[in-house]
Design a protein around this nucleic acid. Structure first.
Length: 627
RNA sequence: GGACUCGUUGCAUAGCUUGGAUAGUGCGAACGCUUGCGGAGCGUUAGGUCGUCGGUUCGAAUCCGAUCGGGUCCGCCA
């Protein structure tokens, strides 16, 4: 139990009062107070005003009066506010003990929303023909953070990365390699994924747009790639595997990991589509058109006729969305699994086994489906995802089994676009892989790391290269991850190279720094922190605010998990760091000449350190001991 | 044309799901704070008709309706 304990106590007592004065149930709130209004507040009087025909102020006084007579454990007293709120003051000696002793346990913050059920999270899903750019990173970090949060609330999470190795984008670079004479080896030291994206893809596209004969070649290549086994298919597999491998390096470097890689080419060859197609027909969810503009096609009915969506063309081939439907159904475990699985050739840094689908030669039978599926895709795909969601709702007869977690894209500031050679007249610009207009994830990381490296070196001239390198890495990764989740999913991130390099204010380093400060205090203390202390010693406002914020950990986790909202955790981390920095400024811990006070404050510092580390871990951000 | 989404101070954002107290934070600006557990920090000051209009309500940044402005989507492309 944490701060929620006092909330529950108040809620129960207020319910008792309601039944004592025999009024109808009302759905009142009991929440942590805004600063300056006690510790816990309830809006109960506002909701009763109508029924009791009294002013909220009078009701607050009445309730507060009655509350005083009820048994109290964690509440010292109730206090009506002229505005109508009923505020409560906590018994901080008890609450301190409750929260601080709980906070050092490994299960602190655990909330059982998942009941150990399985959920699939799919994210990343980038075409394997280029390096990841900063827009992809938003997808990856949202997906990874949501996965971490869901694990914390007792879901078993299967993380999937859908590798679209059979589309036009891949065909483009194959054309480049096979028909336009691009070397297969990148120039000195360049990562293969960067080479494919920056050079082969961009230049091939450029040439294709100028020369219609290349368009023809691409059509041919695309057709050849559909065959199950040919020289060019093997070549394609070699190239895309190599790009994928480099992309995964980027992800792993950002502390992101997966459970299984799903290859689109295999999904197509597996026959999964025909099973889904059969099911769609059986359930009468699609219709063959005998006339009209979609004559000869199978379509999914929209609410209006112009919203009808073609799934099978009049020539019998399946459209783009027809790949998503069987895959979604597979993720929900609704279709018989055609795949075998094998271990991916490289190990993930987190040591978790990474599996991949295969159609033959796999030796393991695995199950990566889930009762719920969350697909992270940017909101430009919302329309198609809505169709998939509604179909899956009918397949599974549960409307919320399939969730499209959408988010707005990352655009480039006009300044940054200009440095990439595009004058946008002061407007932000959409990134474009085809036009070479993007900022790569690796380059942002490198810039941040370089900057942090310099900073750390001047602060710690005594440190080893290795140690400095580790810190710079953790700060750089933290900064990127934090920037990607700290704001609402449906707000555009305008990425600016200069501004994104800031390490001050509402950033990961600010939070990491608070952790480093706490670590140093504990390191310098002459004794180990203990919870066997006099909790009554902690009574300064800055101390109690810090305890309170620590105690709100589980409530924030619940909120973040329920709403699939990573920013809730990033805000919590920030609030926690602010509370600590205020405490740090106001209350000295060491050399106080008061043993009991020092022990109590050390206990608090230790709880903070453990909690902020756990909270940052949900964001995939490391908490360094020094920086 | 239809649909979705965003609009809060010079800039960037939180709060909106579940309506109530003093709209919180960061950057930028001005001025301060280290013989002190680390200044990637802390404090003070300036800056807000919560796009606009209307409705519901005792009460609206929050709910509803219109409207304006930015962005996105709407193919037998992927």
């Amino acid at each position: 139990m944490t701060f929620k304990a006092i909330i529950d106590e108040i809620e129960n007592n207020l319910k008792k009062i309601l039944s004592d004065i025999s009024v109808l149930e009302v759905d009142f709130s009991v929440e942590p107070s805004k600063s300056g209004f006690g510790d816990v507040s309830s809006n109960i009087s506002f909701l009763l005003a109508n029924q009791l025909k009294k002013s909220p102020k009078d009701i607050a006084e009445m309730i507060s009066q009655r509350y005083l007579e009820l048994p109290k454990t964690l509440v010292v007293r109730s206090k009506p506010h002229p505005s109508g709120y009923v505020n409560f003051l906590a018994d901080w000696e008890k609450l301190n003990q409750l929260i601080l002793s709980e906070s050092i346990l490994p299960e602190f913050g655990n909330v059982d929303l998942g009941k150990n059920s399985t959920v699939v999270v799919e994210h990343t899903s980038v075409n394997p023909n280029k390096a990841l750019h900063i827009g992809h990173v938003r997808n990856i970090i949202i997906g990874d953070t949501v996965s971490r949060i869901l694990r914390k609330v007792n879901y078993t999470v299967n993380v999937l990365n859908y590798v679209d190795d059979s589309g036009l984008q891949v065909a483009d670079i194959i054309v480049g390699f096979k028909h336009l004479g691009f070397e297969q080896e990148p120039p000195d030291g360049k990562k293969f994924d960067h080479y494919c994206g920056d050079d082969v893809y961009v230049k091939t596209t450029e040439k294709r747009e100028q020369d219609p004969s290349i368009e023809e070649i691409r059509r041919m290549v695309l057709k050849e790639l559909e065959d199950g086994d040919s020289e060019i298919v093997r070549f394609r597999d070699r190239i895309t595997r190599r790009v994928l491998s480099d992309q995964l390096e980027t992800c792993w470097n950002l502390r992101v990991s997966y459970d299984c890689l799903n290859f689109e080419s295999q999904i197509i060859r597996s026959g999964l589509w025909s099973r889904a197609f059969k099911k769609l027909k059986e359930m009468d969810l699609i219709k063959f058109e005998n006339e009209g503009k979609n004559q000869g096609c199978w379509v999914i009915r929209g609410e209006k006729e112009e919203n009808d969506k073609v799934v099978v063309r009049s020539n019998g081939t399946a459209t783009y969305i027809a790949k998503d439907i069987p895959y979604a159904a597979w993720k929900l475990g609704l279709l018989e699994d055609p795949f075998q699985y094998s271990k991916y050739e490289k190990e993930q840094p987190c040591a978790k086994t990474l599996w991949q689908t295969t159609l033959s030669g796999g030796t393991y039978s695995r199950n990566f489906s889930g009762e719920k599926v969350i697909t992270v895709i940017d909101s430009r795909q919302a329309r198609l995802q809505d169709i998939v969601t509604s179909l899956m709702g009918k397949f599974k007869s549960a409307p919320d089994a399939y969730v499209h977690l959408g988010y707005e894209s990352v655009t480039l500031s006009s300044d940054t676009a200009k440095t990439l050679g595009l004058d946008t007249d002061g407007k932000q610009a959409q990134m474009s892989g085809r036009r070479g207009l993007y900022v790569s994830a690796d380059s942002v990381y490198e810039l941040l790391k370089e900057k942090t490296l310099k900073e750390t070196k001047t602060r710690h001239p005594e440190m080893s290269e290795y140690e400095i390198n580790q810190i710079a890495h953790n700060v750089a990764v933290g900064t990127i991850r934090y920037e990607m989740v700290k704001q609402d999913l449906d707000k555009i991130i305008v990425f600016d190279l200069d501004k994104s390099l800031s390490l001050e204010g509402d950033t990961a380093p600010y939070i990491q720094y608070a952790h480093a400060r706490a670590s140093r205090i504990l390191e310098k203390a002459q004794r180990a922190p203990s919870i066997d202390v006099d909790f009554a010693m902690l009574k300064e406002k800055s101390e109690l605010d810090l305890v309170k914020t620590i105690g709100l950990f589980d409530l924030n986790i619940r909120d973040a998990a329920k709403n699939l909202s990573p920013k809730v955790i990033s805000r919590y981390c920030h609030d926690l760091a602010v509370a600590f920095n205020l405490f740090y400024e106001k209350s000295k811990v060491l050399d106080l000449g008061d043993e009991n006070l020092e022990r109590a404050r050390l206990c608090l510092v230790n709880s903070f350190k453990i909690t902020i580390k756990q909270a940052l871990d949900l964001l995939g951000i490391d908490a360094p001991e020094r920086m």
